[in-house]
Amino acid sequence: MANQPISPISWRGVFPAVTTQMHADQSIDWAAQAHHLEVLIDSGIHGLILCGSLGENQTLLPDEKRAVVKHAKEVAAGRIPVLSGVAEMSTAAACQYVQDMEALGADGVMVLPAMVYKSDPRETMAHFRTVAAASKLPIIVYNNPVGYGVDITPKMFAELADVETLVAIKESSADTTRITELYNACGDRYALYGGVDTLIPECVLMGATGWIAGVGLAFPKENARMWELMMAGEWDKARELWRWFLPLMTLDIGPHFVQKIKLVLQEVGLGSEWVRAPRLTLAGTERDEILALIHKGIAERPTL
């Protein structure tokens, strides 16, 4: 399908959270990054998110993060929206970053709570209001209490609904009831994205209209097909594809999810497993088990 620019408030569909491809010396591999972005765009995705958790945001230097987004904008060349994750230590740093993204021509940002310090609800909402006021860019609010220890509840989202540039939510609480609770609290005020790969069908059934994908980076055509089937309501076909996909989707879970997804990218020829320290590539029994899962998935890969 053709990719067309999408206006911020109508963002829908598959927005992969892209890895940052690296050489063995941990420097950025720009050629591999460009190749992967082209493969993703050709698969029919609807947007790109750079420098998220999977993009190793917090281990990239400030200039590197900005360079990664600038590079993606150049590769995408206006074909689809390009967004950046915002995962800074302070509200002030997040404000500066979104201003820099606006100057670079990013189409939007995906904002996390401030890192390390676990803010209370009042502080969390103040953070998002302040960051939103720092630029005109549309914002996906990333709620991941499992990973980051701060929960943005449906009640809090209802209170934030007056902030016009908060247009979407990446819901990664691992609780699919949140989709319904968000609709009950906020109506259709926000575009809702499922953010946990293993729970996507349930989220879509409850009304999610977007998927911020992880494992689909390695299987973009299958990811696109799964999305198309769900959107068409062809659930018998979707279930059949999902039963193949689900074991692979578990790679998106746990503290080593970046290493696992980069390893599967390597095994399908779309990248390398190199990560930035303190992360290290998988080793020992864990590596053997993950490779066995990946190779089984590749061997049983369906014909689309």
Rank of each mutant, 00 (worst) to 15 (best):
P5I: 10
P5T: 10
W11A: 06
R12H: 15
V14I: 15
V14R: 01
A17S: 15
A17Q: 11
T19Q: 09
T20H: 05
T20W: 01
Q21D: 09
H23C: 08
E38Q: 15
L40Q: 12
S43Q: 08
S43L: 08
I49P: 04
L50G: 10
G52R: 01
T59R: 05
P62Y: 04
E64K: 00
K65M: 11
V68M: 09
K70Q: 14
H71L: 04
V75P: 02
V75Q: 03
R79D: 05
I80V: 15
G85D: 00
G85Y: 03
E88C: 13
M89P: 11
S90W: 07
S90L: 06
M101L: 14
G105L: 09
A106D: 05
D107P: 00
Y117F: 15
D120S: 12
D120E: 12
P121E: 08
P121K: 05
P121V: 03
R129P: 02
V131Y: 02
S135W: 03
I139F: 08
I140M: 12
Y142V: 07
G147D: 07
V150K: 02
V150T: 13
I152T: 12
F157K: 04
E159L: 13
D162E: 13
V167C: 10
V167D: 02
E171M: 06
S173D: 08
A174L: 11
I179E: 05
I179G: 01
T180S: 10
T180H: 06
L182N: 00
G187Y: 05
A191T: 12
G195L: 00
I200G: 00
P201C: 05
P201K: 01
E202R: 10
C203V: 09
C203R: 11
M206L: 14
M206G: 07
A218M: 02
A218E: 02
F219R: 02
W227F: 06
M231Q: 15
G233C: 09
E234F: 04
W235A: 00
R239I: 10
W244K: 01
P247K: 00
L248M: 08
M249D: 13
L251S: 04
G254D: 06
G254L: 06
P255N: 12
F257Y: 13
F257R: 10
K260N: 11
I261E: 11
K262F: 04
L265D: 02
Q266C: 09
E267R: 15
E267Q: 14
L270P: 00
S272V: 10
E273L: 07
W274D: 08
P278C: 10
T281E: 12
T285E: 14
E286F: 02
E289Q: 15
E289R: 12
L291G: 04
A292H: 05
H295E: 14
K296W: 12
A299L: 03
E300Y: 04
T303S: 14
